[in-house]
Design a protein around this nucleic acid. Structure first.
Lengths: 141, 141
DNA sequence: TCTGTAGATGATAATAATTATCATTATTGT
DNA sequence: ACAATAATGATAATTATTATCATCTACAGA
């Protein structure tokens, strides 16, 4: 949390009640992937009159500082999750049956990235999504 | 092309002039990732009064038959590319400087998928994106 | 080749997510 | 406490996509 405060401070971002509320929502939901609307409802439990525009602005700011990670799973709706410290790599498994999204740990793409380096690319980050069935849904079928 | 025709036929989709136009646009741009609007402009060179709704409907139909592959790179806009036969895996490198999107060949995720299998998942497909700088932009910087 | 019909089309309204605008308010350095 | 300026809420605007519906057309069968 302190690290986050410092980051905001360094970028001349004021720590308003609304931003604290959004941050708290994201931290209480660490590991989950929330849409802007979902964040709005949660944030309203703290600041009842917070507006959707502020939520969008805050989420974008936090994402631009790598405090949040922004991605899209289903159709045309972005989701945000709290970044784990300086972990830049995001590996997700999306269950085609129940929609559950889980995280895969481990960075097994090192090999592939270095191959691209040799071809002249400079790779900064990557993003990996698996589509299939989670253990629960797999058992049912 | 014949394989595609057969696929459409088997699914009771009529081969209209509009669909032919969209298909031709996609085939002429094999390897590129086009937005619905870009497809519209190209298709209008053949069928000047083709409507945007038809383009969307056609792209969705073709994607549902795995003739096209649908994905999103930048903000809230889907892009479509011609699928290479029955290749299901899509590995892209997105250049953060010029925006160029190139394809990475090879399926190096087998190992990771089998690990997930052991955990009870059943993985159907995956999608991988690298973000960085392409050889040309990398040289400039 | 003609015809009936289900499926396809174009125009456009509707929807949904996101972004922009702007007057008002609140935070922070001094 | 104050001034400067960034942030906020309300809402209009924008953008991408989907739905609606009257009209049209591809295609199987006579």
């Amino acid at each position: 949390m302190d690290a986050i405060n410092t980051k905001l401070y360094r970028n001349n971002y004021r720590l308003t009640g609304q931003r604290k509320a959004v941050l708290n929502v994201m931290m209480e939901n660490k590991g989950r992937h929330l849409s802007a609307e979902e964040v709005l409802w949660e944030a309203r439990k703290r600041i009842p009159n917070i507006g959707i525009a502020t939520v969008y602005r805050t989420l974008e700011k936090l994402a631009s500082l790598d405090i949040l990670y922004k991605s899209m799973f289903e159709s045309n709706k972005f989701r945000y999750e709290l970044s784990e410290d300086d972990k830049h790599h995001h590996h997700h498994v999306v269950c085609l049956s129940c929609g559950q999204i889980s995280e895969v740990s481990g960075d097994l793409l090192y090999e592939l990235e270095s191959k691209l380096d040799q071809q002249g690319y400079r790779i900064i980050d990557h993003e990996l999504k698996f589509y299939g069935y989670c253990p629960l849904c797999n058992k049912d079928s």
